[in-house]
Design a binder for these strands. Structure first.
Length: 605
DNA sequence: TGCGGAACGA
DNA sequence: TCGTTCCGCA
């Protein structure tokens, strides 16, 4: 069929429908719509209009014709096309603007946050921040392949948010059309180039961007990099404001990567989607150097939000569509070091939600945003792994992390796994995993006044975990509320303790309040039993493991029950009981270390 | 004009 | 999975 280059406009890979052969992916309708929207020659047919991301199909039949031409479907008509568009409702890529005929609205939150994950908002250095921060940009961020071999592996999901490098390739080689419909041009690359920075800087301008009625896909698309590739913008290219762009500026890759600016039209489109995550300068797009969560900023930001209509929804299934949301690597673009160091910066951890919580949630009026960060649906394998390893009592967070491949690596190779334990046992996977979005949508429509609670009270978790959380939020955050029991602030040491858990059931029990409250007696017992076990390892063969475990169980069980009696329901029995010897050994060591820490920090209890 | 179910194809 | 096609309904 056609190649992505057909349009003359290079969409990211994920914009194309994977076909049997790598080169025959078809563009998706929404991409096509965007394409038309950005071409002046079609402004008489379809154009941005009104609200943020809103567009009107002025000539439905013509649009249908064009679409049909593109897809080589001569029989296409608006009725059919609109049916396809309606399917986007469910997918929350689009929604209908009620009362306005032929008028639809993009959910750029979906398109941008999810599909432009690589746009790292973290380093807003020197880039106009005229749009609201996109919460998870950094979370999804995945560096473009730097070598040809990394580019678009056939095995990779072509729609992967991270796989945009091939776009650059296409952009470089031009387009090829095998179904000419007159829409193919190669001029797009230069379109809008050279515009001036109208994003401005500072919160005021940043917020102003929210109100920009028009969105431009291309601005973002260009972020994928021109012929020069990411981080190497074509000469003459710079952040600009595309006249027809809904984006105040185009987040072109700057010296520090394309990160700097990420302007997501979505921001104004989806209630509270981004906000909860923006507080983190390290993760949010515009916070880098221009934004701070002072009351004024927040107020403006919220006001801006109200300019838009929020009546569409995102689906938790989104992650299914973008399975390649990858765990961001610790490293950051070269610009990272240049990012302003703020109070929040040090531990990228959780802050996007957490810091907001501090800024907003601690006040009389909690954050107006209520988010339920739903972890992406677990793959069966991951789910099984997670649940089995945790005895089914693992918290949603732990599971979600595992689902993201952060924690639960089935492989037994390597150091003991460190798991970020949820603060509470109360929540089950089911509670947080996927909920009926239909109801939540309503909540979001009425998001104001809601409270956002941080996904995890600890602020010392690993960056990867944090960013991952962001990744989770990226997609569904605009509608999902992360329900996490409030946890009391903890000292600098506690987080690490709380967050550390060698294996389910082995680490120190964590009270629902997040406090380390394992009875001293139990701790000693455990440690003793572990010592015993360690000795056993040195003296006995594998065959005797069971015996050791039995002994251990005898020792631990009463203590555990005692513990339970004191602290209420606890997690499933120590994992070590069923863990393979090697794993047990490793976890045992970790447990010892943990126990040691427990003792040392006994005062914190 | 818009919606969404259903069957179907690639 | 993403439309495409058809269709009944409001």
């Amino acid at each position: 069929m056609k190649t992505p280059g057909d349009t003359g406009f290079a969409f990211p890979d994920w914009a194309y429908k994977p076909e049997s052969s790598p080169g025959s992916r078809q563009i998706q309708l929404w991409c096509f719509i965007l394409e038309l929207l950005r071409k002046e020659e079609y402004h008489e047919v379809i154009a941005w209009q009104g609200d943020y991301g809103e567009f009107v199909i002025k000539d439905p039949e013509e649009v249908a014709r064009l679409w049909g031409a593109r897809k080589c479907k001569p029989q296409m008509n608006y009725d059919k096309l609109s049916r396809a568009l309606r399917y986007y409702y469910n997918k929350r890529i689009l929604h209908k603007t009620k009362g306005k005929r032929f008028t639809y609205k993009f959910n750029f939150n979906k398109l941008v946050l999810v599909n432009y994950p690589f746009i790292d908002m973290g380093s807003g250095r020197g880039v106009p921040q005229s749009a609201p921060p996109v919460p998870t940009g950094g979370s999804h961020f995945r560096f473009p392949p730097s070598t040809p071999s990394e580019v678009l592996s056939p095995n990779e999901d072509l729609r992967s948010p991270g796989m945009f490098s091939s776009v650059a390739r296409r952009m470089g080689r031009g387009s090829v059309s095998d179904c000419s419909d007159g829409t193919s041009t190669n001029s797009e690359l230069e379109e809008g180039v050279g515009g001036e920075d109208r994003g401005g800087v500072g919160p005021e301008r940043a917020f102003r961007g929210l109100l920009h009625p028009r969105l431009s896909h291309d601005s973002l698309f260009r972020a994928y990099g021109g012929p020069g590739g990411l981080g190497r913008p074509p000469p003459g290219h710079r952040v600009h404001g595309d006249p027809m762009s809904p984006f105040p500026v185009s987040p072109l890759p700057g010296p520090g990567g394309l990160l700097g600016s990420t302007l997501s039209p979505a921001l104004s489109m989806t209630p509270g989607s981004h906000l909860p995550y923006t507080p983190s300068p390290s993760l949010s797009p515009m916070l880098g150097s221009h934004f701070s969560f002072n009351p004024d900023d927040m107020k403006r930001y919220l006001q801006a939000h109200h300019q838009s209509v929020y009546n569409y929804h995102l689906s938790p299934r989104a992650f299914f569509h973008y399975p390649n949301i990858v765990v961001p690597q610790p490293h950051r673009p070269s610009a990272a070091p240049e990012k302003p160091i703020t109070a929040h910066h040090h531990a990228p951890p959780m802050p996007h939600s957490h810091s907001l919580h501090h800024h907003q949630g601690e006040e009389q009026h909690p954050s107006p945003f209520k988010f339920k960060l739903q972890p992406p649906p677990l793959g069966r394998k991951q789910r099984d792994c997670t649940t089995s390893s945790t005895g089914g009592s693992s918290s949603s967070l732990g599971s979600s992390y595992a689902a993201l491949g952060l924690l639960s690596n089935s492989s037994s190779v390597g150091p003991p796994k460190i798991k970020v334990e949820p603060v509470s046992d109360i929540e089950s996977d089911e509670e947080v995993e996927v909920t009926d979005i239909s109801e939540e949508d309503e909540l979001l429509d009425d998001y104001e006044g809601d409270v956002f609670t941080p996904p995890h009270p600890t602020n010392g978790t690993a960056p990867t975990t944090i960013t991952n959380l962001g990744a989770i939020a990226a997609d569904d955050l605009d509608e999902d509320v992360f329900k996490t029991p409030a946890a009391p602030p903890m000292g600098p040491l506690t987080p690490s303790l709380l967050g550390l858990k060698s294996e389910p059931g082995q680490g120190p029990p964590i009270s629902p309040g997040g406090t380390l409250c394992i009875p001293l007696k139990l701790r000693f017992k455990r440690r003793w039993s572990e010592d015993q076990k360690m000795e056993a390892y040195g003296e006995r063969e594998e065959a005797e493991d069971k015996k050791v475990r039995a002994e251990k169980e005898v020792v631990e069980e009463p203590a555990r029950r005692e513990s339970e009696n004191e602290e209420g329901p606890r997690r499933s029995p120590s994992m070590s009981l069923g863990a393979p010897p090697a794993q047990r050994r490793a976890s045992s060591e970790l447990q010892r270390a943990t126990a040691q820490l427990s003792l040392e920090n006994h005062g914190a209890c």
